[in-house]
Design a protein around this nucleic acid. Structure first.
Length: 510
RNA sequence: GGUCCCUUCGUCUAGUGGUUAGGACGCCAGGUUUUCAUCCUGGAAACAGGAGUUCGAUUCUCCUAGGGACUGCCA
């Protein structure tokens, strides 16, 4: 590594489908660590499996990171000094490194067909064992270790398909590594098998490509999901076989499903009604649509904040963090070892916090398109801003502002039956007619305070029940028993509208 | 099955060899709002089990149980 002091980390997803929220969190922790250390955040596309490549997945990954605000410094879009950043475009070099290992006798050719391997596996299974391609079995398989050099030469000349396997050291030893999150993690080589490094289709496997690229790209810290922990010893051994310094590893805890067993999956989202993907995704094959946080109305800052607290905590009681605050506060010392169950309710709470803290003008701007969708002629910016300020504390999402404020734009067509039954009775209906006449006759300034004063006086004069009248008036104006201060509503609705809504209610409710 | 990782309220988590085991989400109750929501106050709610070390373990060690990941010419 040329420059040991500068931190270089990478997020290396495989374009086999939409990026999972767990993937975004992995990217986030890489990003935070890079920014905190003035380092470089790299995006590398690991597309070595041609059979699993999904169209549009790479664009999806890039757009997801962009939406999440995780800008990378080097990657397939903007390039960099260590490109290309797609493994398919680095294809040529991997063979060279595989050959290097063969030369050093750390790897060998294996000619076993998929069928032969399947057979070996099922035979072992019927014996109650598990087949492992390792020092005990490799000599009974078809490879350059078991065959004579002439035989191998001939097979190669005949263009017999083959893979290149790593030769796990025969001498039993413990492979240890100091993980940034887990501390010392140890495996015995005798438990490990001879993994394929180079496939018959001319592409490297993840293990080879990953180690070679991390080395070539001068990656200093490998921050990835816990699912990679079992392959850590192989990777350590590969670095050693190449004679390279290994990066520092950090294996992140998994994100588990909200209920039941196992890690979070796409199905959980469908079942429990929350997104597992940052952006909406339409499967190019089935046309199935999977929900996204963006489309569901989450703010990227809230999404990122929520994700950061899933597996990491600041050690203080602070829960709301801007991206900059996260960069400063983040530390691997405070990343948990155990998997974290995802809680959709808490995700909503985060969004609510961000929504409430947003300036009313900004929310009004975001609310505009929702109104347009509802066919409402948008009011002035000032008016809309005021409406938003009155109802924003009641919602978690911009789209929900509609149900809390629709009555400001559209007169109610229906009235909450329960409220009507409880309030709209006795001498109230008759009084409501008088109230409409009163409002109609108001010639003084139309503002909440003075209207409240006058109406209160009227109620007192007629010896009406204040609560009954107020709730009935609310029912007439709003259609239900919810919403902000009643006289503020009266003021904002303006005289004609208030009068007409009361008369309409009197007519409809009798 | 094998290997490895993990284990504090329902969930996310803080924490210490001696604490009333703290906070947040959610839930419940009361207050404010003559509505609803917000907000405020309060409440229920956890150290997986068993040994050992120790004057004393939730904290250290071991075992058990439970959970998870991996075990592919997938990543």
């Amino acid at each position: 590594m040329s420059n040991r002091n500068s931190v270089r980390v990478r997020f290396a997803p495989s374009p086999t489908g939409p990026l999972h929220m767990g993937g975004v969190r992995t990217a986030l922790f890489n990003y935070l660590f890079a920014r905190q250390n003035g380092g470089t955040f790299i995006l590398r596309i690991e597309d070595t499996d041609q059979t699993r490549y999904v169209n549009g997945a790479e664009d999806y990954i890039i757009e997801s990171l962009k939406w999440s605000g995780l800008e990378f410094d080097e990657g397939p879009v903007q390039g960099g000094n260590f490109g290309p950043y797609r493994q398919s475009e680095r294809k040529a070099q991997y063979r060279e490194y595989a050959d290097m290992l063969i030369e050093k006798e750390h790897a060998y050719f294996a000619f076993d067909t998929a069928e032969e391997l399947d057979q070996a596996r099922s035979e072992a299974e019927s014996d109650g064992r598990t087949f492992s391609y390792d020092e005990h079995t490799r000599l009974s398989m078809k490879n350059s270790l078991s065959l004579s050099s002439d035989e191998v030469k001939k097979l190669l000349q005949d263009e017999m398909p083959y893979v290149i396997r790593f030769k796990m050291p025969e001498q039993a030893e413990a492979v240890e590594d100091e993980d940034m999150i887990r501390g010392k993690v140890s495996f015995r080589t005798s438990d490990l098998d001879d993994k394929v490094l180079f496939k018959a289709d001319g592409m490297p496997t993840y293990h080879l490509a990953n180690v070679v690229d991390d080395h070539l790209m001068e990656v200093t810290h490998v921050i990835r999901g816990e699912e990679w922990l079992p392959s850590m010893p192989l990777h350590v051994l590969l670095y050693r076989a190449f004679g390279w310094d290994k990066p520092v590893f950090a294996h992140l805890p998994l994100i588990l499903k909200p209920q039941g067993k196992g890690k979070l999956s796409k199905r959980d989202g469908d079942k429990l009604g929350f997104p597992v993907f940052p952006l909406e995704w339409t499967d190019p094959e089935t046309k199935e649509v999977a929900a996204g946080y963006r489309e569901d109305g989450y703010f990227p800052e809230a999404f990122i904040n929520m994700l950061a607290l899933l597996g990491w905590n600041p050690g203080t009681e602070q829960e709301l963090f801007s991206k900059e605050e996260l960069v400063n506060a983040f530390s691997f010392d405070r990343v948990n070892k155990s998997g974290a169950r995802f809680d959709p309710e808490k995700a909503k709470w985060f969004n609510h916090q961000y929504l409430v803290n947003k300036p009313d003008e900004e929310l009004a701007g975001l609310f505009g398109p929702v109104l347009a969708e509802k066919g409402v002629v948008p009011p002035s910016v000032d008016h809309l801003t005021r409406i938003v300020s009155l109802v924003k504390e009641r919602v978690s999402f911009v789209a929900d502002l509609w149900e809390q404020s629709a009555f400001f734009f559209v007169a109610p067509e229906e009235y909450d039956a329960k409220v009507a039954k409880k309030r709209w009775k006795g001498d109230v209906p008759a009084f409501m007619g008088q109230l409409a006449d009163f409002f109609d006759g108001v010639s003084t300034s139309w503002d909440a305070d003075s209207l409240k004063e006058q109406v209160s006086a009227l109620i007192q004069e007629k010896e009406m029940n204040f609560g009954g009248v107020m709730n009935s008036l609310r029912l007439a104006l709003v259609g239900g028993s919810f919403g902000p201060d009643l006289f503020t509503i009266v003021e904002m609705l303006e005289k004609d509208e208030v009068v007409s809504r009361i008369r309409k209610a009197v007519e409809k409710l009798g």
